[in-house]
């Protein structure tokens, strides 16, 4: 089993993964960006984005997945999402209070509507996606090391 951490799975799995992993990532981005008009939102979309990288890691091994999204990058994105969420909330003080929806509401049912809610969704998705992928990588590397001994 530990060989799969290095080289990934068989050719069939790799081919199917190459075809589908982009679509999964795109679907996650769609769920995030349309979180305020359709079911979904930052958390669910972020988990789907993390799942696309997990998929890549299961099929191709840890080297390929970590070259697409290194550990430093995932920790950067996670902290960035948290800071972005707080910063947007703090920007509400320009109009009065914390968490104020200070942008214009726009036209309902359009993509650019609902003020700052889509920005909150994007921040949460960065945080959740990068954080869950980092946890997965850490646990897989832990198991890999303990099997090697």
């Amino acid at each position: 089993m530990s060989k799969e951490h290095e080289q990934g799975m068989s050719l069939i799995v790799k081919t199917i993964t190459r075809l589908t992993v982009g679509l999964i990532l795109l679907y996650g981005i769609y769920i995030v960006s349309h979180g305020h008009v359709s079911p979904g939102g930052g958390f669910a979309g972020g988990v789907i984005i993390a799942l696309s990288f997990v998929h890549l890691m299961l099929a191709y091994g840890k080297e390929v997945a970590l070259s697409k999204l290194p550990k430093q990058a995932s920790s950067f994105f996670e902290s960035m999402g948290a800071i972005m969420f707080l910063a947007i909330a703090l920007l509400g003080f320009t109009g009065g209070y914390f968490f104020l929806n200070f942008l214009s509401k726009g036209e309902p049912f359009k993509l650019f509507s609902a003020g700052v809610i889509p920005l909150y969704n994007i921040a949460i998705s960065l945080k959740v996606g990068a954080g869950l992928f980092a946890i997965f990588v850490a646990l897989v590397l832990l198991k890999f090391e303990s099997e090697k001994k």
Binding site: P39, G41, P108, N121
Partner: peptide
């Protein structure tokens, strides 16, 4: 709020403090 998805308007506008706490919990867990 102008958000067509009522869940988004609740968790990110009315109850945004809840979401902030939840995000902090996840951050600490990671």
């Amino acid at each position: 709020t102008g958000a067509a998805n009522i869940v988004a308007s609740v968790i990110l506008d009315y109850r945004a403090y809840d979401t902030l706490g939840e995000a902090t919990v996840l951050f600490t867990a990671v």
